[in-house]
């Protein structure tokens, strides 16, 4: 009876979604627009949506300008994110497998001890963690930025949940062939678990690349700034060329967006698995 009405509702829904999608994309556009615009196009009183000139030279300017330590900060961030991701995947997957598959009388207690740290909000522990790291003498070092973040209870939890559902028959077959826990893990379990490694890996990588409070607290001299700390220093402090700041931010985010779009289905699966199904 009311198919016309329903068609109208559907069309309306689509219009709203398209409008909101455009709105959600505008900030990304502004980033690129300002990064490729001339300084006067950014600060002109008659602001226009499209810049009058595209200035690709901004990119070269960013990499040539020695007063803006952006390249070094990007390099720091890349090292930190790669090391953090690799370390977290190794440590958390081993722990998750041990908890899920190796019988041990106190395994539950160990598991709750790990989960307990999830209850302590990580941002509240920055003062105590700073206390520890500074007494180790790790302030303003890459070590201080990487090592304390390697032990992610969240990642261990995701791996444990995943390995609990890993087909036992595959492991039993390996056991019959005489493989112990260690070789079963590396030869059978890891090669068959690519999706969970991809999901946890991307989530950890993006989190590490984007994290701010810890690098701000630990990276106290310019040599140890991450890209977020460097961008923040210029956003909150002394003025810098706006086009240079925006092109730097665009450079910092575009590789990540590509990774994000390519691996999105793994991330979505990881987010969905992250605990709602309790």
């Amino acid at each position: 009876m009311d198919t016309g009405l329903r068609g109208l509702a559907r069309a309306l829904r689509l219009v709203i979604l398209v409008a909101l999608a455009v709105l959600f994309l505008v900030p990304f556009y502004l980033l690129v627009r300002n990064g490729l615009a001339t300084e006067s196009d950014i600060t002109a009183p008659n602001w226009t949506f499209f810049p009058r000139h595209l200035q690709w030279g901004n990119l070269r300017e960013l990499f040539d300008d020695p007063s803006v330590p952006m390249l070094h900060a990007l390099w720091n961030s890349a090292q930190i994110a790669v090391a953090t991701t690799a370390g977290t995947l190794l440590l958390a997957s081993l722990a998750g497998y041990g908890l899920a598959r190796i019988p041990y009388p106190w395994a539950d207690q160990v598991f709750y001890g790990i989960l307990g740290t999830l209850m302590i909000p990580s941002a509240v522990t920055f003062v105590p963690s700073f206390v520890l790291v500074s007494s180790l003498g790790w302030v303003s070092t890459l070590r201080g930025l990487i090592v304390p973040t390697l032990f992610s209870a969240f990642a261990a939890f995701l791996f444990r949940q995943y390995f609990l559902g890993f087909p036992q028959e595959l492991e039993d077959a390996a056991r019959v062939d005489g493989l112990g826990y260690w070789r079963t893990y590396w030869r059978i379990v890891v090669p068959n678990s690519a999706p969970v490694f991809a999901a946890v890996g991307t989530i950890v990588f993006i989190g590490s690349w984007n994290s701010f409070l810890w690098p701000l607290v630990i990276g106290q001299d310019q040599q140890s700034w991450t890209v977020q700390v460097a961008l923040s220093t210029f956003t909150t402090g002394q003025t810098v060329n706006l086009h240079e700041l925006f092109v730097a931010a665009a450079v910092s985010i575009l590789p990540l967006l590509v990774v994000f779009v390519v691996l999105q289905r793994f991330i979505v699966a990881g987010v969905e698995r992250s605990g709602i199904d309790d």
């Binding site: 959600f24 980033l31 984007n210 701010f212 977020q228 985010i253 967006l257 994000f260």
Partner: peptide, 13 residues
């Protein structure tokens, strides 16, 4: 997509 953006960059924009 914005989930991949850092709070620093978003605040800057």
């Amino acid at each position: 997509l914005p989930t991949a953006c850092s709070y620093v960059v978003a605040s800057m924009i």
